[in-house]
Design a protein around this nucleic acid. Sequence first.
RNA 1: GGGGUGGUAGUUAAGUUGGUUAUAACGCCGGCCUGUCACGCCGGAGGCCGAGGGUUCAAGUCCCUUCCACCCCGCCA
Length: 585
Amino acid sequence: MNCNSLRPEDVGREIVLMGWVQRRRDHGGLIFVDLRDREGITQVVFDPRIGRQGHERAGALRSEYVIAVKGNTRFRPEGMTNPKLPTGEIEVAATELRILNSSKTPPFQVEDDVDASENIRLKYRYIDLRRPKLFNNLVARHKVAQMTRAYFNDLGFIEVETPVLTRSTPEGARDYLVPSRVNTGKFFALPQSPQLFKQILMVAGFERYYQIVKCFRDEDLRADRQPEFTQLDLEMSFISEEEIFSMIEGWIVKIFSGLKGVSPRPPFPRMTYGEAMDRYGADRPDTRFGLLLTEVTDVVAQSEFRVFRQAIERGGIVKALRVPGGKDLSRKELDDLIEFVKIFGAQGMAWIKIQADGWQSPIAKFLSPDVQQGLIDRLGIETGDVILFVADQRKIVNDSLGNLRGRLGRQLGLIDPDAFNFVWVTDFPLLEWDSNEKRYTSVHHPFTSPFESDMDLLETQPEKVRSRAYDLVLNGIEIGGGSIRIHQQEIQRRVFQALGISAEEAREKFGFLLEALQFGAPPHGGIAFGLDRLVMLLCGCSSIRDVIAFPKTQKATCLMTNAPSEADVNQLLELCLKVEGDRNK
RNA sequence: GGGGUGGUAGUUAAGUUGGUUAUAACGCCGGCCUGUCACGCCGGAGGCCGAGGGUUCAAGUCCCUUCCACCCCGCCA
C-alpha cells in the first residue's frame, strides 16, 4: 500500500498510509493533507465528525512531517475529483493520525518546478532527491543497471570486480592517489578504468567479462564529467568489431524499449573518424541535423583575401559552413558567432550573405568571379544562405566550426528534441602528435590494436596508422568507446616504442601485462560506456549531476558532506605524510 | 591556468544616474474558514544586499581583492 495505489475499486477499504506531508490545506472545520511517498500523492481528509483526534493533531502538521494515517477510502464528492492525480477520484477519510516525525521548514519546496539554485540543492541533497524528477532519474538508472546485467548475463558474461586500490599508470588522466600506510611512501591509484584487469581476465580465460564500475579521473569537471563516474565495462575474447557492434546494439535496444517504449533500429549508422572530422568538425558527430562543413581550401587558395591565403600558406585549411536561410542573422548575431569561434582559437570568421541582389560581405570584393563560382559549385549555395568561413590550422578550423555548427543547430531550432541518433565512429588514428610533450600519444589507449594493414607505417609514418578503435556517439555525445586490443607482445612492444615509452619503462609500468601476453593471450576486445551520460540522455537531462545521487560541484567538492576535508594530524603521521605549501596561495 | 554568467529575506527574483524606511512572489508565523487540491481572506515577522577593503557627504549600485555556484576553453589515453 502506497500513496499511489488507491483507486475507485478500493472504496470502502480501511487502510494505513505513511509518508510525508506535501501540503496541508486547513479549512478550519476540515483539513486536507496531500500525503506523498516515492510513488505518488493521496489526499487525506481530516474531518472531526469522523476522527476527532486526527483532526486535532492534523492542525499541527507542516510540510515534510512524516505521518501515518489510518482511514477509509472513499469517493470524493461529485465534482471534487482531481484529474491531475492518478488517485484523484478517491481520498482517505482519516480516523487516526500519528506523527512519526516533525520537520524543520525545508529550504525549498519538494516540487519538480521549484528552481532552487544548485548549491542549495546540493547541500540539502536528501530533500532535492525527494523531488519526483530526480527520484525517477535514479529509478531509471537502477532499471538501466538491472536490464544491463540481465542482458549480458544471458549472453554468458561474468561480472567480475576489479581492484579499486591499484597502481598508477602513465598516459591518460591524472590519478587520484591513496597513500599506503603499510608501505610507507608508496601510493595506490584509483583506476581510471579497469582496462588492464579486464585484459588480464581475457588472458585468464574468462572469455566474457562485464562490470558496472566506478572510475576515477582527477581532471577538471564539466556538465558531463565528474571525478568519479560509472562505466559499463566489458571485454570479450575471440571477438570482432562486428560482433561487438551488434551485441551493443541489442543492449541499447533493450534499454530503450524497456525505458522509453521505443528504440532506434539497428544496425546503427557508421562513420569513419575522417568523415566525422571533415563533415562535422568533431569525432562525435551530432547527426540530428545537417549544416555540414565543407573544405574549400583549394577553391579560395588563389583568392585575394589575405587571411585565407596566409592561413593556407602556413599549412592551414579553410572550411565553410552553409547556413540555409541564414541571411536573417543580424550583424549583432554574426558578431556573437565570431566571438564564439574565438573561444576555440579561431582568429576570426568571415561571412557572406547570399542576397537576391548579390553577395553581401566584408570579403566579397576579394573573391573573384571564378572563386565565387567555385564556392557556388562546392557548397551548393542558394539565395538566402549565409556562408561562414574559418581559416586556420586544421584542428582550430574543425573545433571552431564544429562547435559553431552545434550552436547554430540549437539556435535555429534544427534539432528534434525527441530524436536519439546513434552513430558508430570507426577507423580512428592510432596516434596523434603531442606538441607539448614532443612525442606521439595514443588517441584511444596504448593497448589498442593497429590495423594490420597499417603496421608497416608504425615506424615510418606513425600518424597514418589506423586503429581498431570505435566510439558509440548519441546525439553528439560520446557515450562509449572501445577497441580490439593488442594480444601479441611483439606488437605491444612496437606500439610502446612508437609512443616513446622505453623498454624499461614499459616493463616497470606494464610488465605484468606484457608478461601475461606471453602466456597464451587470446585475441580480445571490448568497450566501455559512460553510464551516467547514457542515463542523462535517456532522462532528458543536460548534466550528469541530475542522474547521480550525490554529485560533486565543479570544484570537485561535496556540499553535503564538505568533502574533501583536511586530514587529522595523526592520520598523516601514520602515513608519514606532511602537507607543505598551498598551491592556491 | 584562462574566459563568461550569477550571488539581495527561508527560496526565487526586482532594485533606474550613487540619494528618504531595500521591493515582490512563494514559503514561514498568528487569526478566521466544512470541499480544498498553487485553497481563500485578514494580520505579522523576516535582510551584515556572499566576504573584505577602497572612493564618496552618501554605496545593494562605482573601484580593488577574495570566496561560492554554474557554463565553457585548456585538461579529460
